[in-house]
Computed example of a mutant assay.
Amino acid sequence: MSEGTMQRRAQRDQRAQRARRTERLPRALVCAVAVPVLLAAAGCSSDSGSGSGDEGGKAAKSTASASASPSPTVRPAAYAKLPEPCEVLSEDTLGDLVPKAGKSGKEGTSDDTSARGSCSWSSLDDNGVKGSQFRWLNVSLLRFESDVTRGAGDELAHEYYTKQVQDAQAAEGAQKLKTEPVAGTGDEATAVRYDLKKKDGTFKQQTVVARVENVVVTLDYNGAGLAGDKTPDADDLMKDAREAAKEAVAAVVDANDADGKASGSPSTGASAAKGSAGASGDTAEADDSDDGKSRSSSKSTTKKS
C-alpha cells in the first residue's frame, strides 16, 4: 500500500471519529436537559400533594371547631310570676292612702297576667261646703324574661326602670320637680315628685319606680284639696308612697318565694347587675301603652273631681 493511500485512509478515520463525537453531543445534551425536567415535575407533584393535604387538614379542623362551639346562653330570670295587682297592698295601707276607696281596686286589662298587671284606686272625702280631699293611687307591675337575643331579665328590667324614671321627670306641666333615691326598696328605686296646677286646685304628684330582680314596680300617687279645702302636704304623700312601693315590692318577692322562681340560679338583690323578655319586646311596648293609659286615667279622674 502506497504512502498516499495510507494518509487518505487516516484522514477518513479522523473525519469519521469527529462525526461520531458530533452525533453523540446532542444526545448527551438532550439527556442532560431531560433529567432536571423530570426532577422538577416530580418536585411539583410532591408539593401539590402536600398543599392539598394541609388544606384538607385545615378544613377538617375548622369544621370540628364550629361543631364544638357552645350555643348562646343567658342567665335565667329570677322571678317567673307576678302577684295579683289589686292585692299587693294591705287594707291598712289602702285605708291610709285612699281612705274612701273601699276594699277593691280597678284592675287594668292584661293579656298576660304573669308578665304585667296594674290596679288603681280613687278616693274623694267630701266635706260639703268645707271642700273635699281627693286621692288617686295606681300600681303597675312589669316582669321581663331572659332572652338570648336581648339579654338577661334583670338587665332588661333595669332599662325599663330607667325609662320610667325619665318619663316621670318629663311630665308635662310639672312644677317644683324633685328626684331622690329610695333606699331599702328592691334592688334600686327612685322617687319623683312635682306639682300640677289645675282649675280645681294644685295636685301633688308622687311617683316611685322600683326594680326587684327582673320586675319593675311603678307606683303613682297624687292628692289635692278641692272646692277650697287645703292642699295636702307633699312630704306626707311622699312618705306614704314610699311605704306603699316597698310593700308592693315585697309582694312580688313573696309571690315567687314558694314556686314562682324560674329554674336556674337567679341574681340576688342588690348584687344583681345594675346595667340589667318578661315579657318579650312586644310585652314591654304593650306595658308602655298600659302605663300611658293609667296616667291618662289619673288626669281624667282628677278633672272629674
Rank of each mutant, 00 (worst) to 15 (best):
S45D: 09
G49R: 12
D54Q: 11
A59G: 12
K61E: 14
K61R: 13
S62Y: 08
T63R: 12
A66N: 04
A66G: 08
V74C: 00
R75Q: 09
R75V: 06
P76A: 12
P76N: 01
P76E: 05
A77V: 01
A77W: 00
A78Q: 04
A78N: 03
K81V: 15
L82Q: 05
L82C: 13
P83E: 02
P83K: 09
P83D: 01
E84P: 01
E87K: 15
V88L: 07
S90D: 05
T93C: 03
L94K: 15
G95F: 03
D96R: 15
L97D: 03
P99V: 03
P99T: 05
A101I: 00
G102V: 01
S104R: 01
E107T: 14
T109W: 12
T113S: 11
T113I: 06
S118L: 03
W121R: 06
L124D: 02
L124V: 07
D125R: 00
D126K: 11
N127G: 07
N127C: 04
K130C: 03
K130P: 00
G131E: 12
S132Y: 04
S132R: 11
Q133P: 00
F134I: 00
R135Q: 12
R135E: 06
W136G: 09
W136L: 13
N138D: 11
N138M: 11
V139S: 03
V139K: 08
V139F: 03
V139G: 07
S140M: 15
S140T: 09
R143K: 14
F144T: 14
F144N: 04
D147M: 02
R150S: 13
A152Q: 14
A152K: 13
L156I: 05
L156V: 11
H158G: 11
E159K: 14
K163D: 15
Q164C: 10
Q164D: 09
Q166G: 12
A170I: 02
A171P: 01
A171T: 14
E172T: 07
G173L: 02
Q175H: 08
Q175W: 02
